[in-house]
């Protein structure tokens, strides 16, 4: 129930954020989708023990969140919800990988700790970039971008329909769950005797709804094709943004910026 409610709220929060009008929001959705995908692949392409050279990539989410006027709280909250499982898997690395790999004064740092740190930073980067994409673009525009980059139309339509009715059904489920909870006093979840009938009723209702939607579609001339309106055009702004982001990513990939900075400042250590 709490999960149902928080899911619904989370969906609405992100959806709200996507309606803002900032520079980032005004970019073509294709530009943002491509940049995000490149970013994620780039982050994961760093070697397992890479820590320092990942850090400059933090500029990307930080800059986007500032320019896109996104609040930190919901994104950090989401991150904390996702983190435990990944961190749990990551924590095995220090256990199984104890080869010393770097030295800090008299401390030997093992490969396990380094890779654990690397996983955590990668988690931070990939999670925030996905959330930022949707919070600055919105589901509908992402779908237009998907069809623009060649995703088959039935898939795009399926995502759009699913997303549209997710809002309706989450609300309906929330009410059903509330009705159940108001009359059950023992536990927080659904008692096993009600599993089939509760979910089954909801399912039948959902299928009836699908039938009504289909009829409504037929009434407006539906013949198996869903017309999607054309997407926004690329502008100079988009080209510049793409160029800037991609060159920054390449810079980060091939030059260890913190290392260079540090070497510059600490100079004589070598």
């Amino acid at each position: 129930m709490i999960k149902l409610e928080s899911t619904w709220l989370n969906l609405r929060t992100i959806d709200d954020l996507a309606t803002q009008k900032t520079f980032i929001h005004s970019l073509n959705s294709c530009t943002k989708l491509i940049t995000t995908l490149v970013f994620v692949v780039l982050v994961t392409s760093f070697s397992k023990y890479e820590v320092t050279s990942l850090l400059p990539l933090l500029f990307y989410p930080v800059a986007l969140m500032s320019l896109g006027n996104l609040p930190y709280k919901p994104i950090v909250k989401r991150l904390l919800l996702i983190a435990p499982f990944i961190v749990f898997i990551g924590l095995f690395n220090p256990v199984f990988d104890q080869r010393p790999i770097a030295k800090l004064g008299s401390f030997l740092i093992t490969g396990g700790w380094l890779s654990f740190l690397s996983i955590t930073i990668k988690l931070l980067l990939t999670v925030t970039s996905a959330l930022i994409l949707v919070a600055t673009t919105g589901m509908n525009s992402i779908c237009t971008a998907l069809s623009q980059i060649g995703v088959p139309k039935p898939i795009v339509i399926q995502i759009l329909f699913m997303y549209r009715y997710l809002h309706v059904l989450l609300e309906e489920f929330l009410k059903t769950n509330q009705a159940y909870n108001l009359r059950s006093f023992k536990t927080a979840g659904i008692h096993y005797k009600a599993w089939g009938s509760l979910l089954g009723q909801l399912l039948l209702r959902t299928m009836d709804r699908a039938q009504r939607i289909y009829q409504a579609m037929l009434c407006r001339g539906f013949d198996g094709k869903v017309p999607l309106l054309s997407a926004a055009r690329w502008t100079k702004k988009d080209h510049l943004y793409l160029l800037f982001c991609l060159s920054f990513f390449l810079l980060c990939r091939f030059i260890n910026i913190p290392q260079a900075l540090g070497t510059l400042l600490t100079g004589g250590f070598q």
Binding site: P154, I157, Q158, L160, F161, M162, Y163, R164, Y165, L166, V168, L169, L170, L202, L203, T206, M207, R209, A210, I213, Y214, M217, G224, V226
Partner: peptide
């Protein structure tokens, strides 16, 4: 088409 959409949401 609508059935897959709502069942996904379901």
């Amino acid at each position: 088409i609508p059935l897959m959409g709502v069942l996904g949401a379901f």
